Simulated assay, not measured.
Amino acid sequence: MIAGAVDTSHRQHPLHERSTDLYAALLGGNGKITDGWPSIDQWADSLETMFENNKGTISVSCAEWGLPNNSEDETQFIKDAIYQAEKSSGVDARFILSIVMQESKGCVRVQTTNNGVANPGLMQSHEGFGSCNDNGLVQNPCPRSEILQMILDGVEGTPAGPGLKALIAQEGGTADVTSYYKAARAYNSGAVASSGNLGQGGATHCYVSDVANRLMGWTDGPSLCAPHSIGQLSAAHWDSDSSAGHTERNGTSTTTTARIFAQTHGSSSSSLSAPSTPIVQSSVAWTSARVSHSSTSLACRRKGN
């Protein structure tokens, strides 16, 4: 339990009591729990729970790229590798899984992306060594050793760039949950923006909000994060079920949040599907956009900066 947690009585119930497709909060600002970001006790209660809830997504994750889906053994190897990486690095296994899901949805044969730096494997690591899809050379089955290497590349880092372990330490260490959120930003884009706002900077603006929601139990339901406006929020705003009529600690009401997004959402990116789904009742409706996985991670990767 991390000291300094804010009152969370208005928020969603624990993971096992709520739908796993629920995107619970728009998480804007700097990642501090005093600004409404989730404390560690609001994360999924264990890797076992979190992994079980993501199994359905993992099992069909490769089909998006026209590749053979994971076998049951390959999926089990991912969990085993995450536990092994947690033991060797001290990085929370739940955080590792959240990055895996954000980067590849758990597809062991995910392709390598390259925007100036090669990002292979389950965690799209910085010039990592592990891959079961090396320039189109697909391994099926994907060996246990290769899956472990993919996870270690992302967690322990590579000679070319840091992994989660070094980035968490760089941002202050595991005693403060904010360090995890900052590390996620740095893992995706190379650095935290000078403003400290985790919805700003390069690469995928919704990355950290998505990762934090995954840690709280979100799996594969609609993302409520609009990439071109999340950076304008200075604090977290929880969904209508948990915060309707609630005024946030910074004095911004959920109705105001709705108005902000109505004014800034604009036209949808070509990579988004945009069902018009209001999530709060207000005089100004705003829409949520489901971001396709390929646009949230594989198509928007760090460039080694």
Rank of each mutant, 00 (worst) to 15 (best):
A244F: 11
A226F: 11
Q263F: 15
S282M: 09
N140E: 11
S242K: 01
G130C: 08
K32N: 12
A289H: 04
E127Y: 04
S295V: 03
T254Q: 10
E248Y: 15
N250G: 01
A235K: 00
I40T: 05
V6R: 04
W43D: 00
R94D: 00
K87Y: 09
F51E: 02
V110P: 00
C225P: 04
A166Y: 06
L167Y: 01
E127W: 06
G66S: 13
N213H: 05
G136F: 12
L224R: 15
I82S: 06
R301C: 10
I99A: 01
G199P: 02
P275K: 14
V177A: 02
N115I: 12
L15P: 00
L167W: 03
E86N: 14
L47H: 06
W238R: 01
I168N: 03
A184K: 00
A289T: 07
A212E: 05
S104V: 03
A258W: 04
I151M: 12
H293Y: 03
Y23Q: 09
K79A: 14
L122D: 00
C62S: 05
S194C: 04
A25V: 14
R249A: 08
A289P: 08
D241F: 04
G217T: 03
Y83E: 15
Q170F: 03
S273G: 08
S39V: 01
G4Y: 03
N197A: 05
D210N: 14
R109E: 12
S288W: 13
T57M: 06
F51R: 08
S276L: 03
M1C: 09
G128M: 11
P14W: 00
T287W: 07
A274F: 03
E52T: 11
T256N: 11
G31Q: 06
R94H: 05
M123P: 11
D73E: 15
T287D: 07
G90P: 14
T296D: 07
G173R: 12
E17D: 10
D35T: 13
P38I: 05
H246G: 00
S61I: 00
R290P: 02
G172Y: 06
T287C: 04
I151Y: 09
Y187P: 00
T287A: 10
T20N: 06
W286Q: 02
S269Q: 05
F51V: 09
D21N: 13
I147E: 03
